[in-house]
């Protein structure tokens, strides 16, 4: 039981570490590039857009989609590594 508990605790820590990394990216592209740094980024240009404007109305959304798929994919691996995935149920 106690090894099981330790395993689950380690699994939770791995999850939190991954979340911290991905949420940092989430924050930087939306609140960072799209809002706080937007005016400064506007001096650069991408596909004909001012860069800050592009992040606020396009770029951040693409990054969001990618982040969720990366999380789903990485968590699947972490689930398996700690043996707590939901595939095993079906066996």
């Amino acid at each position: 039981m106690s090894t099981n508990n330790t395993n689950n605790r380690e699994y939770w820590k791995a999850n939190l570490r991954l979340l911290a990394k991905l949420l940092t990216i989430w924050f930087i592209v939306s609140f960072g590039f799209g809002i706080m740094l937007a005016d400064w980024l506007d001096q650069f240009s991408l596909f004909g857009f001012k860069l800050g404007f592009w992040f606020a109305q396009q770029g951040a959304i693409y990054v969001f989609v990618a982040l969720i798929f990366i999380y789903a994919w990485r968590m699947k691996a972490i689930d398996r590594q700690f043996g707590v995935g939901d595939d095993e149920d079906q066996a």
Binding site: L19, L22, L23, W26, S30, G34, I35, F53, A56, Q57, A60, I61, F64, L67, I68, Y71, A72, M75
Partner: peptide
């Protein structure tokens, strides 16, 4: 709305999509 307020309309685009990241990371599973 975006058509009339231009750049300020970004709040809706960011807000209504960024929330899904929180949903997927912190609540849904």
């Amino acid at each position: 709305i975006i058509s009339f307020v231009g750049r300020d309309g970004s709040v809706y685009l960011l807000g209504w999509t960024g929330g899904y990241v929180l949903l997927a990371f912190l609540l849904a599973p």
